[in-house]
């Protein structure tokens, strides 16, 4: 079967905040995800799916169903009840590794808990007296991107499972006295239309960044959207080829960002700026501070700098804070963080 072409990430018109948020997460997985809030038909899903094309490669163990890295083997491999990789039988062997692209795994809204967590084939166990595990979506998403469309419509107990593994980086398959755990650390990317209901605060907090998007208002931009789409539908292959150059340039920029990140520094006054930003707008806890800092550093790395600027901090706050601002019960998520801050400051000055 011929590979279906995906609309290239770089060819998406506008939606700069969303694209940036996604790129930053690729450069620095510690940002722990993006929540994309917005109306229907704003290229949310297209962007996330297209991300796969520009993702860098990581080292994984060959044939490992959990896509472990070399440092993660050991205890888990001894108990592994799935794979047929040599390390599950022979503890002394040095596992073979290979390079593989980071994956984007989609979690469908209707997914059952079994599908997400993984299942134990109980009937098999009853008949043969041995365990057999079928790993779920969380196993596949380890070290990759877990994409949840309409994340606000997920069943509550699937949300619980997501929260558990997001918090601990571990997923546990448990049925009838059998328990098997494997690492599950992923970048959580969710999209939602706020009109259909809000997220629970804890889940909201798990998303590092949050962007609100809407359709373009500029007619010219709208026309550009239509044109590109038509071009793509006409001849996907040729279209993708035309954008190949740009995609490669972006991949390179991302890779440079990744290698630059550890060397990025920030001056202390800017840390105070971050703290006062969070205090001014009123956020719960300290995760906001930490995420702004990481976002600002990632931004600097992305732009090829090793020094964080105050613009990076302001931009980082814009991405990291909207969903963290303390709200009265039943109040909606803030849209403009900087405006809110100025307003609050004015309020205090008076």
């Amino acid at each position: 079967m011929e590979k279906r072409e995906i609309f290239p990430f770089t060819a998406i018109v506008g939606q700069e905040q969303m694209k940036l948020a996604l790129i930053l997460n690729v450069i620095n997985p510690a940002l722990s995800g993006v929540l994309i809030r917005g109306e229907k038909g704003t290229a949310k899903s297209t962007a996330v799916r297209a991300l796969a094309e520009i993702l860098p490669q990581i080292e994984v163990i060959k044939r490992c169903p959990f896509r472990l890295q070399a440092s993660e083997t050991g205890e888990i491999c001894k108990k592994c009840v799935v794979g047929d990789c040599p390390s599950s039988r022979d503890m002394d062997c040095v596992p073979e590794t290979c390079m593989a692209a980071i994956k984007v795994i989609e979690l469908p809204v209707g997914a059952t808990e079994d599908r997400v967590v993984g299942t134990m084939d109980l009937e098999h166990a009853l008949k043969k007296g041995e365990k057999r595990v079928d790993p779920g979506i969380l196993a596949a998403a380890h070290r990759g991107i877990l994409y949840v469309d309409e994340v606000n419509l997920l069943d509550d107990h699937v949300v619980d499972v997501l929260l558990d593994s997001a918090a601990m980086g571990v997923n546990t398959i448990e049925r009838e006295g059998v328990s098997f755990s494997h690492p599950a650390r992923f970048t959580l990317v969710g999209t939602m239309n706020p009109e259909e209901g809000e997220l629970r605060p804890q889940l909201l907090d798990r998303f590092g960044l949050c962007v609100s998007i809407e359709g373009a208002h500029d007619p010219e931009e709208r026309v550009a959207v239509m044109e590109r789409r038509a071009e793509f539908d006409d001849d996907p292959k040729a279209f993708c080829q035309r954008w190949q150059e740009e995609s490669r340039a972006l991949s390179n920029k991302i890779e440079r960002g990744i290698s630059l990140y550890p060397r990025v520094t920030i001056e202390r006054p800017l840390l105070f700026e971050i703290a006062s930003f969070c205090l001014d707008v009123g956020v719960d806890g300290h995760r906001g501070d930490i995420i702004i800092l990481k976002t600002a550093k990632t931004l600097a790395a992305y732009h090829g700098r090793t020094e964080v600027t105050s613009q990076d901090v302001a931009h980082g706050a814009e991405l990291a804070l909207p969903h963290r601002i303390r709200r009265k019960p039943l109040q909606e998520v803030a849209s403009d963080v900087n405006a809110l801050r100025n307003q609050n400051r004015k309020g205090k000055a008076v």
């Binding site: 808990e113 041995e130 107990h157 619980d160 558990d164 546990t172 448990e174 009838e176 006295g177």
Partner: peptide, 23 residues
């Protein structure tokens, strides 16, 4: 020991060990 949010009753208190029950 962390209790998972989705833990069932048998997971919390313990349940019958099916391997040994059958074997």
């Amino acid at each position: 020991v962390t209790l998972p949010l989705n833990a069932t009753e048998d997971r919390v208190t313990g349940g019958m060990d099916f391997n040994r029950a059958i074997k």
